[in-house]
Design a protein around this nucleic acid. Structure first.
Length: 439
RNA sequence: CGGGGCGUAGCUCAGCCUGGUAGAGCGCUAGCUUUGGGAGCUAGAAGCCGGAGGUUCGAAUCCUCUCGCCCCGACCA
């Protein structure tokens, strides 16, 4: 993509309303614009990242055996009356009345809708287990939205719902999601640590929060420092196999949120305990028959008896992750995108937008990169060199390929790694070989 | 939901206390000169001073009401 043809309104100064770094950088890099409190439009650059995050989430859900569906944003109040949550949910639920005076709502979550789908379609234990997920916009009318997309009122969430015949099967479903979550966040370059959590208003008896470490995180967390050296992607895991040993392994290391942590009872010696800030990016629950019983989601068991299904729900804040990734990966110049979610892999910079030789060399590199399928943002504007460097650092693409008069004369380009800052003056061929290599 | 702050040009802000023709920097447009880390000069365009009432000869400025946004706390993917 040529910058001259793109829509990427950069801001030189920090907008006054943005206080935390991810919010500032998302606004400055032209990823989002606020429409009203807690509600954002996603501009091309931001949308590209959002879709990459979404796709990784989708791939890992599919890999675990979950099935994608799409449920509506607007739901009828009657379903929530049936589960008993319509009155309980309070003002966080945005309530709407349609033209027929029917009570509707903008869904903050979808347990009721998915349970309704399930109960109407599944009648036998032979059709279990099932796990249905969707990636859809949710709305929670937070009293105080803040931190940009990290805590918006409208947000994109992946929510999955498992249905099983008994508690043992439900635990297997829980384990699948548990491991899928570890893989999902690791693929995005994040260190996400599962922490035993309160089940809160959703209820039930087993729950984990997935928290990534970032200096600007909203809550204090404590964990065994061994967590920082673990590589969850290294383990080859068959999601259809027995996952309990993996679950045991990954939950044996100490990790706790502020409210669950008791220094007096902490089993980890102080020297091995990491105290950090964290951002919650996922939350999984096993809650048994909390919804299936009141909503009549029952199946025939092996002996013909009616059994309410055992359920769990599993959420990932997809739009929040975009902000969280920036919180975890930035420097004083701007964003430092992990390769897997970077909006473009390479930023091609022509330092002399008005110079024929530089234009020819840059155009040729751009064409080669495009033909090789390398996502490239090509800054072809006639701006000063400093302005282009600053813009490219702000946007934070993993690689910068710089074409200037010096290099054109010498037959070289400069390849810069955004994360390390390392620069090399190498031939265009060598640079292309590097950028088109498998990664 | 308690406490606080702020609404003036696209962005960051001054002006308000003490009422008297609406300002700066950046950005934008045009031209010239520049060109390896947010260039310089010249000329321009750009505002219902968040909105509504009021006080006054006169309101960005004083008063009342209202809307919006942000921050701290309690709550949350």
């Amino acid at each position: 993509m040529r910058v001259s043809a793109y829509f990427m309104p950069l801001l030189k100064e920090n907008p006054s309303e943005a206080q935390i770094v991810s919010h500032r950088l998302m606004l400055r890099a032209g990823m989002i614009r606020q429409v009203t409190a807690g509600i954002y439009s996603w501009l091309p650059l931001g949308l590209k990242v959002l879709k990459k995050v979404e796709q990784i989430v989708r791939e890992e859900q599919d890999h675990s055996g979950a099935l994608e569906i799409l449920m509506p944003t607007i739901q009828p109040a009657d379903l929530w009356r049936a589960s008993g949550r319509y009155d309980d949910y309070g003002k966080e639920m945005l309530r709407i009345t349609d033209r027929h005076e029917r009570d509707m709502l903008f869904g903050p979550t979808a347990e009721e809708v998915v349970t309704d789908i399930f109960r109407n379609a599944v009648k036998s234990y032979k059709d279990l287990p099932k796990n249905l997920y969707n990636i859809q916009w949710k709305f929670r009318d937070e009293v105080r939205p803040r931190f940009g997309v990290m805590r918006g009122r409208e947000f994109l969430m992946k929510d999955a719902y498992s249905f099983d015949i008994d508690a043992a099967a439900a635990k297997r479903a829980y384990n699948k999601m548990f491991l899928a979550y570890l893989r999902t966040f690791a693929r995005m370059g994040l260190k996400a640590i599962p922490m035993r959590a309160d089940t809160g208003p959703i209820g039930g008896d087993l729950s984990h929060e997935f928290i990534i470490l970032a200096d600007t995180g909203e809550s204090a967390v404590y964990c065994d420092k061994a967590w920082l050296e673990t590589d969850v992607l290294a383990a080859e895991i068959d999601p259809a196999g027995d996952l309990e040993p993996f679950f045991q392994k990954w939950t044996s290391l100490y990790a706790a949120t502020d409210e669950m942590h008791d220094p007096a009872k902490c089993p980890v010696p102080a020297a091995d305990l990491v105290t950090a800030r964290g951002i919650e990016v996922g939350h999984i629950f096993y809650f048994g028959t909390k919804y299936s019983a009141p909503m009549g989601a029952v199946v025939a068991g092996p002996n013909g008896e009616s059994v309410p299904v055992e359920m769990g729900s599993y959420g990932i804040g997809v739009s929040r992750l975009v902000g969280a990734i920036i919180e975890a990966s930035h420097d004083d110049k701007g964003i430092v995108w992990p390769e897997a979610v970077a909006p473009f892999r390479v930023g091609l910079v022509n330092l002399r937008g008005g110079d024929a030789k530089c234009i020819a060399a840059s155009d040729a590199l751009y064409a080669t990169l495009r033909n090789a399928g390398v996502e490239t943002l090509y800054d072809d504007r006639d701006e000063s060199a400093g302005a282009k460097f600053a813009a490219m650092d702000l946007v934070g693409l993993p690689w910068q390929l710089v074409v200037g008069p010096r290099g054109v004369a010498a037959g070289t380009v400069e390849l810069k790694n955004r994360k390390t800052g390392d620069r090399e003056e190498i031939s265009a061929e060598a640079a292309l070989a590097r950028l088109t290599a498998k990664h």
